[in-house]
Amino acid sequence: MNTVPLQTTAVSAAVGGGEAATFYVLGTLVVLAALGVVFSRKAVYSALMMAVVMIGLAVFYGINQAPFLMVVQIVVYTGAVLMLFLFVLMLVGVSSSDSLVETIRGHRLLTAVIALCFLVPLVSGLAAITAGEPVGLSAGVAAAGGSIPWIAGEIIYRYVIAFEATGALLITAVLGALVLAHSARTKKKRTQRQMSQDRIRGDHPTPLPGPGTYARHNAIDMPALLPDGSVSQLSINPVLAARNPELQHGVPEDLSYSIGAAPDEKPDTAASDNDGQREDEGSWTR
């Protein structure tokens, strides 16, 4: 069988000049992005910087003859894990930015000192080592008939118990996440019948006017204009109205009092943001 091994990354064991260049450029980028993760004011920026770091590392994996991990890094980490971070960020509040003022006295200084005490000996110690030319994986890859078959063989045969254990771990994690994310319903779910009854009995059987209707700007914080040109306060999301005192004027009492609570009767037109249909999650925004 003289099949040529399915070798996608044609990088030799030796470290060539091109690799060095790539390392320095990409390495700088990765370090800067990592610093960005730590020092961004907003969590979303941190997440984006994280994506840069991860992709950079994926490239390094590729250079280091680990094509499988490169793919996994991008698919699992950048694709799945980071997206999970972003979802949670959105749940917690995308735009929220942390105060960077340190609350623990002397903590930041101490952290810097200890981190330096950690990094400097580590780097200097590592720099003192000359590893020489790397052995490289080409021989092993050739013997195993490919990089991925090699890893597969190792995982399936030699590390099979660890592999099974990680499987169990993942299932446990999924169950744990389900349990943690589940929240018990505190009040009885409203049926469609109840909702329709409330709506007919309420002040506004008809849908409330959507925001921005006939207004100059088609935005959700722009109240709709009534045929006589006056402003319809009903057209504004009560959350927005609550935050902006200017908008509160003329908002019907039943709505102004229910700010923050589940917007039961709010028609779709007034619920342009994602929170509109949620009932039991309450208000997510701070």
């Binding site: 903590h107 101490l110 950690f118 000996p121």
Partner: peptide, 27 residues
């Protein structure tokens, strides 16, 4: 005992630095 997890984590990092320094020193 500040009650801040970060302070405790700092202690861990300090410990790691000590271990590292010891290892280097021994080597």
């Amino acid at each position: 005992q500040t009650g801040f997890a970060r302070s405790y984590a700092l202690t861990m990092l300090f410990g790691a630095a000590v271990v590292l320094a010891t290892t280097l020193g021994v080597n």
